[in-house]
Design a binder for these strands. Structure first.
Length: 823
DNA sequence: GACTGAACTATACC
DNA sequence: ACGGGTATAGTTCAGTC
């Protein structure tokens, strides 16, 4: 039966049939019905010929290639045909033999057989079939298409693939992107899930309960506890029955997206492991298949026909730079983005949960899914726009790092440049790259400590990206040797040269910056979520482009380009600082792309004129922007030496808003009391313009500390465990506490925030190490007044009050209490 | 055992 | 293995006297 539908691709998969590859795409039609389409594309890679190969020779080589075949794993793959094209490779014109083969999986095996001396390079054998398919057919994820083709209905085509799926399967004959005006909204059907277990280790304990939350759908499935009060709780005989019902509910809800928080690493593998343990099939897939897991460094869980998303990964890789929260835990992220916390639940073994306590446990479990769903909905516009721009399927994109997304953006936009895609670095190459010496990075201005009135901040917009674009700093432009007309950049140890013709990397980056500007304006005009998400996506790509060229795993890795970007950025900011100083202003600070200077009685218009004057002289697309006017700003000295400390300052805007950078206040590895005290001291100084109130506040805190009136909660220090306990060469307090916790049977893992406080030890040595005094929050003890005074509170405020000539450090010895008592 | 500088470690800034 | 370098600052560790 023939059919024509409107279709939006959501989840991409592929399969082999009779030795050839097919894309199998799950999506929705305009009625919201789930549909699967099957399509295929040419499978090919490139052999780039050396310069000066004759037409006759070209033909001979093609004839030889035409005969190549390979037999592996019970399949035979052969070359279908070859033809020769004029292509570009790293911006240079080349002759490329396009080699069509029957199965992409053997692209590498075939490429290996093409070692003729006339062939310079073989490329694009390392792109995934899905990527190739999207590149070639332009069937982009989350974009609406018109599809016509045959509905497979119990046909034997593709070995009866349609019979295993209870949705329409269409074999594509024609697929066309709908025009922009026909591109309507798409709101996916999302289902969030979360499990609770006794054991943290995957599959070790039983799953006690599973929560599921979707639109108008809230369930907690369990086989524990008494009959619950709430009707969202459903009881089952045992774990097996609960798991079966879970599968049934997921299938009947029919989500596009199944999402969890850390679900790649915990919930999904746990479910799979427990299903195995109770000998049932976790047939979540549209064809009844079980979730599969890739064996990378990180687990990745895939379900056929349902897009499984681990929200934590997208948040960590893409979204986290917008976040202020101290950790990326569901609790912290939900609090920041939704203004809501997880429910309170004191974790304990299920044998210690009694009676109606289970109701709280169920509620807690439900809330996790509830928060996860709402986070997913909140972040959806960002995922949607990012996918549409980068053009990789959401399953991969949501797990990719920014470097990978930059690369995928390049790959999917390369056809415009007729470029053959560079290969991914192989193992040894990565080793060499990682071994390369670091290059000099950003310039940071040495501040002069003090409290200043009326501070102006300028900053360069997308500075590194605009430097790359303005000077064509990329692998395709780079040469070691001086070339006529090329730009010479002094990298200290060596010189690098960049041709002045543009190339795909800077050109695409220029477009990204342009689009960012365009959508930022669009968003300013109408506050639309999608416009904001689009603008953000381009901003993220622009900001990641510099790091990409210096990243060892990049196809277009070019360390000299990265080094030159930093070098030229240093040059421009220094020039700008000089210019501002020549105009009579006093520059007090600057870091990488920002400059702070004193307004010194000049009008705002004077400042804007100054800005305009600078912008007129900046090269290429570089641009300086006004970040803001601040009523006051404070810079302090380093703890050692009298110089001003870099990356540490606090400002108060004309609107009274306070901005603090680098101070202990914003560092999570300082105790709450030190952070709060410092924050308050900074606030009082910035608001009042003097230290009087700040000192009296400090005095109050010190007295409370000495009188043991401080709540232990305020004294807890949190430090992250960054590697396995055994790998530490130096046993600092948090490592010592971590091993203590492990001995006490508490699960300790990499990434965990270890909490402790410093206590007095009885009759101990005079000079005990800090770690010997560290205790777990649950351990009884008297907090060490001396420690908190000398190692937390005083260091946090010392340099700030020093700006006013107050030597707070002498108080620590108890010698000169009067200097504070005076206030 | 006291002292000191280097090494190790975590976290921030842009 | 899954962006980059710059910077501050605490604690431990190893060497010296």
């Amino acid at each position: 039966m023939q059919k024509q539908i409107k279709f939006i691709p959501i989840d991409y998969d592929y399969f082999d049939f009779k030795g050839e590859n097919y894309a199998k795409i799950i999506g929705r039609d305009s009625d919201g019905k789930k549909v699967c389409i099957i399509d295929s594309c040419d499978v090919y890679f490139w052999a780039i010929l050396k310069e000066g190969v004759s037409a006759k020779k070209e033909k001979e080589i093609c004839e030889k290639i035409d005969k190549i075949k390979t037999k592996t794993k019970g399949r035979e793959t052969r070359v279908i045909k070859t033809d020769v094209h004029d292509k570009k490779y790293l911006g240079r014109s080349v002759r490329g033999i396009k080699i069509f083969i029957t199965n992409y999986k053997d692209a590498y095996a075939i490429a290996e057989q093409i070692g003729f001396k006339e062939v310079d390079k073989r490329r694009e054998y390392d792109l995934s079939y899905i990527t190739k398919y999207i590149m070639d057919k332009k069937v982009k994820p989350l974009v609406w298409y018109s599809v016509s083709g045959e509905v497979l209905n119990n046909s034997m085509e593709f070995g009866g693939i349609d019979a295993s799926m209870d949705i329409d399967v269409i074999k594509v004959e024609k697929i066309e992107e709908l025009e922009e005006k026909e591109q309507k909204d798409f709101k996916p059907r999302i289902l969030a899930y979360d499990i609770e277990t006794d054991e943290f280790e995957i599959g070790k304990g039983e799953i006690l309960m599973i929560s599921l939350v979707g639109e108008g759908f809230r369930k907690v499935l369990t086989w524990k506890g008494e009959k619950a009060k709430e009707k969202y709780v459903e009881h089952f005989k045992d774990e097996e029955e609960m798991l079966e019902k879970f599968v049934e509910y997921v299938k009947s809800y029919d989500p596009d997206i199944l999402t969890g928080y850390f679900s790649d690493g915990f919930d999904l593998p746990y479910l799979r492991a427990r299903a195995e343990a109770v000998r049932i099939k976790l047939g979540l897939g549209i064809d009844g298949s079980q979730p599969s897991f890739s064996r990378g460094r990180m687990l990745t869980g895939k379900i056929k026909g349902i897009l499984h998303i681990d929200l934590l990964k997208f948040i960590r890789n893409v979204y986290s730079q917008y976040l202020q929260s101290e950790t990326l835990s569901l609790n912290d992220v939900a609090l920041e983005l939704l203004g809501e916390k997880k429910d309170e639940w004191e974790h304990r073994h299920s044998s210690k949960v009694h009676g109606n306590e289970w109701d709280d446990y169920f509620k807690y479990n439900l809330k996790d899914s509830d928060l996860t769903l709402r986070l997913a909905e909140k972040i959806w516009p960002d995922m949607l726009e990012f996918v549409r721009i980068v053009q990789e399927p959401l399953f991969d994109l949501s797990r990719d790092t920014m470097a990978t997304s930059v690369e995928n953006y390049l790959i999917h936009h390369m056809d415009k440049f007729n470029e053959i895609v560079e290969k991914r670095p192989v193992h040894e190459e990565i080793g060499t790259r990682r071994g390369e010496e670091k290059y000099e990075g950003a310039f940071v201005f040495q501040p002069i400590p003090g409290l200043y009135d009326d501070v102006v901040f300028f900053d360069f917009t997308s500075m590194y990206a605009s430097v790359i674009v303005s000077y064509n700093l990329s692998k395709a432009n780079y040469s070691e040797e001086k070339v006529k007309g090329s730009l010479e950049v002094d990298l200290g140890r060596e010189k690098a040269y960049f041709s002045d013709r543009t190339s795909f990397f800077p050109e695409m980056l220029g477009e990204i910056i342009e689009k960012r500007k365009k959508y930022k304006k669009e968003y300013a005009l109408k506050k639309d979520n999608l416009a904001k998400a689009r603008s953000n996506a381009f901003k993220l790509l622009a900001n990641a482009a510099y790091g990409y060229q210096g990243f060892f795993g990049a196809r277009y890795y070019c360390l000299p380009a990265a080094a030159a970007t930093a070098a030229l950025a240093r040059k421009e900011i220094k020039k700008t600082i000089d210019f501002i100083e020549k105009k009579g202003y006093k520059v007090v600070y600057g870091d990488t792309d920002s400059i702070a200077f004193l307004q010194s009685g000049k009008s705002k218009k004077d400042i804007l004129d100054l800005l305009e004057g600078i912008n007129k002289k900046l090269p290429g697309i570089m641009e300086l922007d006004l970040e803001g006017f601040f009523k006051r700003g404070i810079w302090v000295t380093k703890r050692t030496g009298e110089f001003g400390a870099k990356k540490k300052y606090a400002l108060i805007g004309d609107d009274g808003k306070i901005k603090i950078r680098g101070f202990e206040t914003v560092r999570r590895d300082w105790c709450g009391l030190a952070r709060e005290t410092q924050n308050k001291v900074l606030e009082l100084i910035l608001k009042n313009g003097d230290e009087v109130k700040a000192v009296s506040y400090l005095k109050d805190v010190l007295n409370k500390l000495k009188d043991r009136k401080i709540d232990l909660k305020q004294l807890i220090i949190k430090t992250q465990l960054k590697k396995p306990i055994e790998d530490y060469k130096s046993i600092s307090p948090h490592v010592s506490i971590a091993s203590k916790m492990r001995k006490a049977g508490i699960q300790v893992g990499i990434g965990m925030l270890i909490e402790y406080y410093i206590a007095e030890i009885e009759g101990g040595k005079k000079r005990a190490l800090v770690r010997e005094k560290a205790k777990m929050p649950s351990e009884k003890g008297k907090y060490d007044i001396e420690y908190y005074l000398n190692n937390q509170i005083l260091p946090a405020v010392e340099n700030i009050l020093e700006v006013f000539g107050i030597k707070v450090s002498e108080l620590a010895d108890g010698k000169k209490q009067m200097s504070l008592g005076d206030y």
